[in-house]
């Protein structure tokens, strides 16, 4: 009664010995030890045995199962040991496809996220603007030099390509009621192209309108941005300047990261220029439909490209490289 069982056991073990293929060993396991496997098939005769025969058969059945399982375990262990020995962690990998988002998109994302943390709403306003939004509404009369043909692109229909994101200040004030905290990031255009200027670039413009705002709030906001963007140790300062759409107006400087603010050949007495800022001119508030007796505002507008390159230390040499579509350039970011 045990011959067939013994044959099944021997057959299984002979198939296992010398076999190192994982799938093959699994097939053997199913074939012999599975629910409908050989061993269980052999076990079907147990119902026709006597009591004493059942005891003997049961013992032999269990021994067969253990022997096959043991052989399988040993074969798998040997295989693992061999794999472990041949495992070489220094083999270079095969890179998955690695793409890139544009340097400027990364910059915009980072800048935007800092301001949205303190309650600013992100906007993107038109690039083609009317004269009023681009200049007149910003307290720049028709004879202002910024309108000079040499700097502004004029477009048919009496429109312009906006030279600054400040046009967004008016759009925001006319569409939202105070309190306002806006970060407008978009493309701007100036009619110049050389090593340090490109005709199309990006600016980010902050506008805050509320009751009781002060220059201290502007300082606090710019300081918050500078520390989050450039690093905790960096300081900012304001110097007097002049813009038509702000009064007072400021030039904003940041402490030099090379010398720590002491002064070196890369900076001016320890400071680098960042961009402009100021308290929104009452004429601009009026143009935006905001009661300038009740509300005050501050605004700042800086170049995305310039600000990001100051932080990252990327030295392009020719800023027009920003618009390069060569993968060797793009994949560096």
């Amino acid at each position: 009664m045990l011959d067939s069982l013994h044959r099944a056991r021997t057959e299984a073990i002979s198939k296992i010995l010398g076999n190192s293929d994982k799938n093959s060993l699994e097939q053997i396991r199913i074939e012999y030890l599975g629910r409908n496997g050989r061993i269980n098939q052999e076990a079907k005769i147990i119902t026709s045995l006597t009591k004493d025969e059942k005891v003997e058969f049961g013992r032999a059945l269990n021994e067969a199962k253990r022997a096959i399982e043991g052989a399988l375990d040993e074969a798998l262990s040997e295989r693992e040991a061999v794999e472990q020995q041949s495992f070489d962690p220094t083999i270079p990998g095969i890179l998955p496809p690695v793409g890139s988002t544009h340097l400027i998109s990364q910059a915009i994302e980072e800048i935007s996220s800092i301001f949205t943390q303190i309650g600013f709403t992100r906007r993107r306003y038109p690039e083609i603007e009317t004269d009023w939004y681009a200049f007149e509404g910003l307290n720049m009369p028709k004879d202002h030099p910024a309108r000079d043909e040499q700097e502004t692109f004029f477009v048919e229909g009496g429109l312009v390509l906006t030279p600054h994101t400040s046009s967004g200040q008016l759009r925001e004030m006319l569409s939202s009621k105070p309190p306002i905290r806006m970060i407008n990031i978009g493309k701007t255009y100036r009619r110049q192209s050389d090593l340090t200027h490109i005709p199309m670039f990006h600016q980010f413009e902050g506008l805050v309108i509320d009751e009781g705002l002060s220059i201290s709030n502007l300082l606090g906001t710019l300081d918050y941005f500078a520390k989050n963007f450039f690093g905790e140790k960096r300081e900012i300062r304001l110097r007097p300047y002049n813009f038509r759409f702000t009064e007072p107006s400021f030039e904003v400087d940041i402490s030099c990261d090379v010398c720590g603010g002491v002064g070196c050949k890369f900076c001016k007495q320890g400071w680098l220029e960042l961009g402009g800022a100021g308290m929104v001119h009452p004429n601009v508030l009026k143009a935006g439909g905001v009661d300038h007796k009740k509300y005050r505002g501050f605004a700042f507008g800086w170049g995305v490209e310039r600000t990001y390159m100051m932080k990252s230390g990327i030295k392009l040499g020719d800023i027009r490289t920003i618009l390069s579509t060569d993968i060797r350039h793009l994949s560096q970011f």
Binding site: P179, I180, R181, L219, G220, T221
Partner: peptide, 13 residues
């Protein structure tokens, strides 16, 4: 001048 962040209500837009 001191540096102070705004303390007013955050706009809901």
């Amino acid at each position: 001048l001191p540096k102070k962040l705004m303390t007013g209500a955050i706009p809901t837009s």
